[in-house]
Design a protein around this nucleic acid. Structure first.
Lengths: 127, 127, 127, 127
DNA sequence: GTGGTCTAGACCACA
DNA sequence: GTGGTCTAGACCACA
């Protein structure tokens, strides 16, 4: 389970982490009950302050996506899959909707827009 | 020429404004030489601080997209169309790229993703 | 609008603050739209690090109880009253339920328990 | 003699255990001289680390509530009844005091609060 | 002025 | 070992 963050992206580090955890769950790479890497074990290789990781984990807990038992590592909550995994398409939809609105505002033909998207998809490799 | 901003969107107001001006130009709704609404006339209906509008206009000027002649209203620069209008597709590409990456990370088939996008496009009306 | 925290209570400071804000809203001392004291203006008199206040405010925002517009002070969200104000009795119920279970487990007669509660209520002054 | 713990309640497991033992004594379900279940026999069904149970028992010993004779099981101390059984009302008072303060802060009338408590008491069955 | 992020480092409770 | 809290202090974006 490897996460990556980019300190220059402008997106806060803790948010990048949250998104990656959510993505891993949605994609099934993290299953309910799976333990997450410990705060410290993540902080070192990422070159990030442990508190930043802690913040991300903490918020995911409050969202009910992670589950914590004192003294134990955080695990993916049972509900998380319902919340995230089952709705993969609706997540993609949320990302695509603005791109649909944009095409329309730019008066780009649907066929042209779709062709562009298809091209981008084939250029993307599963990372 | 009406702009809309959403103070809850998380995107800074001045950035939302900049994007909307660029969009209007790219879509041809604003042509080179066209005057932009004055800071005040925009600030009131939007419920936004005039300084925020001013900031957006200033940055657009620095980017060479707007043109200012003392005592006259801001106008769309001649180059603007080249910069923005001609690259409509590349703007859409910028919006679609993350959606391509997401589909891949969620292990959604390209065909399924493309179908979803096509559906969203036909559901979108020019606003 | 005065908040008080007790660093020795064992309850985390940020949690004490969150509860007090919620209480103030539930009691109507803070109305939707009302601005909260700024992070800094609260940190000094309470002798608490600004980040601790910030954390409390931040979480209340995520819970939808506070509302933020960049550059402006935090205000009580419109929904907050629905969430908190309208349910005053149910909040009290949540606090009383364990005390009801306890009386039962200690085999204390309801009349005796009620009498005790009544006595405590009259001893308590609106602070 | 059955204890129950909830790892999600936020209250540390060892504390939940301590409270339950105290309660059982206060309610007379455990009498002076009665033996407590062994650490192991408790750890397994509760799904709790034996060290956690041990910690709870140890602290109860320090408080003079349990009594230990090498090689023998832990028993309820003679004083325990005095300490706990006799003060049933004061235990309930400790639980009710915050509920009294809360009613006051929420500006709920004493009569209303008392009525609510009475209702909860009659709804509660000895478990 | 407003709140938000991050680090470095200390300290704590729990298991 | 696990995560959680807090401080002190720097720095940033926004209005």
């Amino acid at each position: 389970m490897i996460f990556v963050v980019d300190p220059h992206s402008g997106v806060p580090l803790f948010q990048q982490l949250m998104e990656q955890v959510k993505l891993a769950i949605a994609a099934g790479r993290l299953q309910p009950g799976d333990a997450l890497p410990s705060v410290r074990s993540l902080a070192v290789p990422l070159g990030v302050n442990p508190m930043t990781i802690s913040k991300a984990y903490n918020l995911l807990q409050r969202e009910g996506i992670l589950d914590h038992r004192p003294g134990k590592p955080l695990v993916v909550a049972a509900i998380a899959e319902d919340q995230l995994g089952a709705r993969r398409l609706s997540q993609l939809e949320k990302a695509l909707r603005p791109a649909a609105a944009l095409a329309s505002q730019l008066a780009i033909e649907p066929d042209e827009a779709v062709a562009l998207y298809r091209r981008l998809l084939s250029a993307t490799k599963e990372s």
